[in-house]
Amino acid sequence: MSLTTTPTTRATAAAGAGRTGADRPGNGAPGARAAKVEGRRGRRRSDVALTAVGVCALVGVLVTVWLGLWVTPPDRFMGNLVRLLYIHPSIAWVMYICYGVAFLSSLAYLWPRTRSLRFDKLAGASSEVGVVFTGLTLVTGSIWGRPTWGTWWTWDPLLTTTALLFVLYLGYLAVRRIPGEPEVCAKRSAIAAIVAFVDVPICYFSVLWWKSLHQPPSIADPVTGKTYIHGSMAWTLLLSFVSFTLVYVWLVARRYRLFVLAEREGDEGLALALAERRAESREAQA
């Protein structure tokens, strides 16, 4: 079946596909119109919420930069290099959130009671953002490591497992692009996300399990809860964690919308192509 059309058939098909008002099936019905109005209201509400999150994230990051670069004092041992640690741990924290959300969404998709393509889209959006944050974790860590450890890169367990995470989730994004039926693709992607997630706890606990050049958790004692940083340094780091989490929410929501739009674009293209074929067959019969 050819998808090429002549101008005549295209115009006829468009007239068939884009019938106005009452003669279009379902469109003139009060229920469909109410759903459309409700959908538009819902989108405006989500736009307002997303803008609010975006503004809060931007303000939070700008204040973090101001506090981190100009207000907080230099560290006794690291000097000014400590300022890099107001963004590096927060970026790494968001990386873990990204993969955690992708893992839970994939589980929700595979679970028959909660199976919905929404979870597949959420997993895809979160993983893509996660890959960006993993890349940034590696780069900002490397920039900090060069003056502190004397090297840009070392095969330390944490660094190696983080690099592995980056590659695994790039592979996951590649798996998502393999063509096929949406349900088959979603199932395949969900399994890939769950397999890739195995590296996340290994990455997180590697500093405790093996002798590592990277320091173990140094913000607070995981057992006693005693904090090791205080004053403006602690507040700046806390603000950084909150701000980057808001950045994550904003980015994932944007990416999720792109998935929805791409899906709708595919559906509309298919509907239009079908209408064109019907118009062609009507012309052939006449």
Binding site: N27, V260, E268, A271
Partner: peptide, 11 residues
């Protein structure tokens, strides 16, 4: 609207 389902024939 991004949140509304696609209705065939309303392209």
């Amino acid at each position: 609207p991004a949140g509304t389902p696609f209705v065939a024939g309303t392209s």
